[in-house]
Design a protein around this nucleic acid. Sequence first.
DNA 1: CCGAATCCTGCAAGATACTG
DNA 2: CAGTATCTTGCAGGATTCGG
Lengths: 127, 127
Amino acid sequence: MRNRKIGFDYSSDHFEGCPVETTLDVIGGKWKGILLYHLIDGKKRFNEFRRLYPKITQRMLTLQLRELERDGVVHREVYQQVPPKVEYSLTEFGRTLEPIILHMKDWGEKYKDRVHSETALNTEDEI
Amino acid sequence: MRNRKIGFDYSSDHFEGCPVETTLDVIGGKWKGILLYHLIDGKKRFNEFRRLYPKITQRMLTLQLRELERDGVVHREVYQQVPPKVEYSLTEFGRTLEPIILHMKDWGEKYKDRVHSETALNTEDEI
DNA sequence: CCGAATCCTGCAAGATACTG
DNA sequence: CAGTATCTTGCAGGATTCGG
């Protein structure tokens, strides 16, 4: 996937055509799929994500959420209070991604073992 | 997305749970979505891909195709002849990804402009 | 024609510390 | 609590060359 945030190389180079790439730009980031998935069943706070995925660093969490926000799929609601409170949720636009995310989840569940085992022992070839 | 090819950090670390991640492992590579998409309507040769996407380097094309092959979604058919000929196609397993890829394509087509414009709008304020 | 093998660079991403 | 600010590093990915 391209990294849009840097510039518009698709403008300098006949626009990259492929729509699949557009979608992967939005959901294909290192943690974006996961974040989006967890947002499907409701808003989440910053530290909720950290609890769900302890491996993601604060920095990365911030960056990925900011990109999702910039793409208009995630809304960031700041409550002016002490202690601070910020809630992330899917926008209406973000909701249009739900079917894809859920579909990916189903596929992952179904073929998880297969993918992992094929990776491990280099595939028995078919066809 | 994680990079499986290195090792199994999901074994050392409570298994990473999220199925969405599994799927993104397979289709989320930099060019994988595109490659898979173009394989939907039939087998392709190495240089066909290069023509379709002049920007992808030989090296990356090879690497990405190899990973797809190792994940069992792409089949690599070598014809022993001169000049050499290699054809790539989706395996039966790879076909199970078709709906997702096509769905992503539809989404990308539909919202391409929106995503791009949203991106463009907030790039100028950059701190 | 379809790669494999090297070499090299830049950015993505980790670690750590600090703050409103 | 929800982030920034730095510093550092690893590896993805580019360029180039060689080979069957």
